[in-house]
């Protein structure tokens, strides 16, 4: 464990808690893409299959449980909670995210480190996580006005991915055997997707204006 990875995990945890806090306190999911949340729940479900079989550390198991419970409860809130579901804008959240699932699965079948069920599901979760933010970014472009919590949520997610890239660079230089091209490339693609959001986020923060993404 290195500081970049710990900071990345904490930032990722913060992003999920910010979202849960927003939904739970103001009982609203305005501006949040249910599709992205469903993709994240699928990412965790397929990545943490080894939750009960491979024990790595208490930290690892605990964090996996937190991410699983929080991602599925966010989906539950938006779909079933009688008040929150009313604020879900399904007419705007129209990204056909199922079209992302199949290509990621096929790619995982072709490009993976080992052709085993667990490894293919893990690789699938990596590719899916790389594109899971797309419905949310599309929704932000559409709704234009981004409320603070949603902006912070996407910002924290981007920060978590950026910290993970620093973690991989650190591990590459400190652990001779640590080479995971698949992880690195899909992680890089994912981080690049946030790049333009970051640009507009900092612009609005610097000029102290409301965050707006160009149509």
């Amino acid at each position: 464990m290195n500081i970049f990875r710990l900071a990345g995990d904490m930032t990722h945890l913060a992003s999920v808690l910010v979202l849960l806090l927003k939904i739970h306190t103001i009982k609203s999911c305005a501006g949040i893409s249910l599709k992205t949340q469903e993709l994240y729940a699928l990412v965790f479900a397929t990545r943490y299959l080894d939750l009960f079989t491979d024990y790595i550390s208490l930290y690892n198991t605990l964090m996996k449980l937190i991410f699983l419970v929080s991602s599925f409860s966010i989906v539950w809130y938006i779909r079933h909670h009688k008040i929150v579901r009313r604020s879900y804008d399904k007419d705007q959240d129209t990204f056909r995210h199922y079209f992302l699932v199949l290509p990621c699965f096929l790619l995982a079948l072709v490009i993976n480190e080992k052709f085993t069920v667990k490894e293919i599901m893990w690789t699938f979760s990596l590719y899916l996580e790389a594109v899971a933010i797309l419905p949310q970014l599309v929704l932000l472009q559409r709704t234009r006005n981004i409320d603070n919590l949603t902006g912070q949520y996407v910002f924290l997610l981007g920060a978590y991915r950026s910290l993970y890239i620093l973690n991989w660079i650190y591990r590459y230089f400190t652990e001779p055997h640590y080479v995971h091209w698949i992880t690195w490339i899909s992680g890089l693609v994912q981080t690049l997707l946030y790049a333009d959001f970051f640009y507009y986020y900092f612009q609005s923060w610097k000029n102290n204006v409301k965050l707006e993404l160009p149509a």
Partner: peptide, 10 residues
């Protein structure tokens, strides 16, 4: 090396 199959990152 068996390090590759156990993914220790979240």
């Amino acid at each position: 090396n068996d390090e590759s199959d156990d993914h220790d990152e979240l």
